[in-house]
Design a protein around this nucleic acid. Structure first.
Lengths: 195, 195
DNA sequence: CTTCCATCTGACCGATCGGTCAGGGTCTGA
DNA sequence: TCAGACCCTGACCGATCGGTCAGATGGAAG
């Protein structure tokens, strides 16, 4: 085995990702991670300041993509925002299946941690965009169900390729979301209503 | 305060439900529940054999409804099964918003407990029915996303009435699910393919 | 050879967890 | 009056958690 550079740091990260998705963040102890890597718990804490820092580094790439999607969304409204949100989120969910699976269960508690600040607001904006910025219950519900469902479900389809999954999810979203054009003309929509 | 019957048992149950939905099952200690009720931790364990039994009693009604839905589904196929599954699950999710929110994050771990045996199989059958018993990825993905999304999202809409939520979810499901009739006629479907 | 630094470890810490237990009230019915 | 069922509690238990720390190891630089 040619293994000049052991890269313990990366191994710990990978093992943590695997364990977190199965047992959850709370349900996985540093001991568990160390056991899978084949090192001591102290070694895990040598490479990472604490358990929270381990999670933060694990989620950093996914969060970065989410942030950039949020930026793309600023200023967009209506059908354009809807489409960008749909494509962006589906792509994000597919690419970071594992990372999202980690966050899945612990969402409400983990959002308090500084590493995940503003995530709630960002996903709120994402949901609004997907709902066509409508406040009708039907649109709001559909958007939230889709976001939550995709987050939940993505981790389950390990047997499906990224492209296939992306396509299926995108067609599902387009079929399920309330189209912003189909709004009953109770409001003229001459300009974007803001605030 | 006319309080002839303190009903500590019920108060503990209600407090546990509230805490579990916020902090999760793992994240809520018996001490937390006792504190909210205003009794000692020992009292909680006097009324319930252990933490697991508390959760089991909390979820029992929802699980009973899920089981009966599963029974209704036996024998049904195609569009009929699809419709029963959609109506049944939407109704269940709306009625037991809080209970499902409890189970949400801890699903994979809690399924090991004897109180939740067969739940995985039941929800698998439910998903199959919603997918029109098709094995096409699109149908499977849509069904799972809808089930997961509804479970996740139901707890969030405290401001929406049951009837309103039920209607919105049902229309969403009907719009989003791949209709069993729209199957490409690559298979004659003369009779239900089984096994 | 010595020094230095990165890596890693076993032993240990305080806190908290779920759960046990002996016993103290309080009410009821004989 | 007294026995017993019911409800509740403080004190305590072993286990496990995240995290600390002094020191062992080993390779590179001087």
């Amino acid at each position: 085995m040619v293994r000049a550079v052991p890269d313990t740091h990366g191994e710990i990260l990978a093992a943590a990702a695997r364990q977190f998705t199965v047992t959850g963040y709370r349900g996985t102890s540093l001991q568990d991670i160390a056991r899978e890597v084949g090192c001591s718990k102290a070694t895990v804490l040598y490479h990472f300041a604490n358990k929270e820092a381990l999670l933060a580094e694990l989620m950093a790439p996914a969060i970065e993509v989410l942030r950039s999607l949020d930026e793309q969304l600023t200023g967009l409204t209506g059908a354009a925002a809807q489409e960008v949100a749909a494509q962006g989120f589906v792509d994000l969910a597919v690419r970071f299946r594992q990372e999202i699976a980690v966050l899945r269960g612990e969402f409400p508690e983990l959002l308090c941690q500084p590493a995940f600040a503003h995530i709630q607001e960002i996903s709120d904006r994402l949901r609004d965009a997907l709902a066509g910025h409508s406040d009708r219950p039907g649109a709001r519900i559909a958007a939230l169900v889709l976001l939550a469902g995709i987050s939940e479900a993505c981790g389950e389809f390990a047997d499906i390729t990224d492209d296939e999954l992306r396509l299926a999810l995108l067609t599902l979203v387009r079929r399920a979301v309330e189209p912003v054009d189909a709004l009953p003309p109770q409001q003229p929509t001459t300009e974007d209503k803001d605030s």
